[in-house]
């Protein structure tokens, strides 16, 4: 059986044993997702690639610390997220969401640019504040489950659910302003 047909879990097991081929396959599988995720966090393509490089360096050196191979994807995104937040720490604030803030009245829309929408749908994402945008990217682009998003962001499952709803609500409001539908309420 060729390694390409191995499940992710077996790839991770091979990686644990030091297989560079497994490492390469995991990289190929996730490089696009991680570049895209990190780009939406730091908004600079070159820095996003630096972060992805750092992430894979840590994966190679620290795979032994991963307890459960089935949680590899969350672990990978968590490393990337930590690297990105480290980069952002001195540059611009990234106000993380909390379980409590899901019940508050904070606006998911980024006040500064919400009025400067261009034709591109991705400008809607730009109009979201970074922490809400991150949830949409993880869910819609990268296809992570609520449990995985909770693991990556440190939120509870119910907070992930509420925040994603709020992010969608804000996107729908912008979308309907931009493209002419009535207010969705």
């Amino acid at each position: 059986m060729s390694q390409s047909s191995l499940t992710e879990r077996r790839l991770v097991e091979h990686l644990r044993l030091g297989s560079r081929e497994a490492f390469g396959q995991i990289y190929v599988r996730y490089k696009g997702s991680l570049c895209n995720y990190c780009y939406w966090l730091v908004k600079e393509k070159d820095r996003a690639e630096d972060i992805v490089h750092e992430t894979f360096l840590k994966v190679w050196n620290n795979i032994g610390t991963l307890d459960d191979s089935s949680s590899f994807r969350s672990w990978l995104f968590t490393i990337a997220r930590n690297q990105a937040l480290l980069f952002l720490r001195d540059r611009r604030p990234f106000e993380e969401l909390t379980d409590e803030s899901s019940s508050e009245n904070d606006d998911p829309l980024h006040a500064l640019i919400s009025t400067e929408l261009s034709d591109s749908i991705s400008s809607l994402l730009n109009a979201l504040s970074p922490a809400y945008r991150e949830l949409i990217v993880l869910r819609v682009y990268e296809g992570l489950s609520y449990a995985e998003i909770a693991s990556v962001t440190g939120l509870s499952l119910s907070a992930v659910r509420v925040h994603l709803y709020r992010a969608r609500k804000a996107l729908a409001r912008l979308y309907n302003e931009q493209y002419g539908d009535k207010d969705d309420g």
């Binding site: 696009g32 570049c35 780009y39 996003a48 809607l124 979308y175």
Partner: peptide
Amino acid sequence: RLFWNSSIRIERELLKEERIRASTALD
């Protein structure tokens, strides 16, 4: 229903957008 339709359209549009790709330098 309006929220449902908007949300579905937004996701469809977002998924149509070109994604950031890894460069050969990163490879």
